[in-house]
Amino acid sequence: MPPPGGFQEIRYKRNLPFRGPSGAVILAGVTAVCAFGFYRLGLGNLEKRELQRERVWSRIYLVPLLLAEGDRDAYRRQQAALEREKEIMKDVPGWEAGKSVYHNPKYRPAESIVVL
C-alpha cells in the first residue's frame, strides 16, 4: 500500500549547475570587443596620419630658416677655401682659383674633403 500522501515524486530532471554564459553569448561578447578594438584602431590610424602631417609641416616651416643659416655658413667656407686656393696657387701662372672643372654653369657642392 502507498504511504499516506502518496509516493515521493520521482526526480527525473538532470541536475546541471549554471556554468557561465552560453557559447553564443561569449561569441557575441568577443565579437563586440574585437569590433570596438578595430574601431579604435581605425580611429588611431587616421589620427596617426594627422600627427605625421603635423610633424612634417612643422619641419617644412623650419626648412627656409635652417637652409638660410646653413647657406651662410657654406658661403663663408667657400670663400675661405677660395682665398686659400689663391694663396697656394699664386705662383702658378694662368691658374684660375675656384674655376669649375665642369663646362656647366650649374652649381655643384664642393668636394667634402677637408685638408688641415
Binding site: L65, A68, D71, Q78
Partner: peptide
Amino acid sequence: RDPAHCLKEGRRVT
C-alpha cells in the same frame, strides 16, 4: 642651389 645666390633672401628669413 648655389649658397651665394640667396644670401639676401636668407637674411630676411632669419
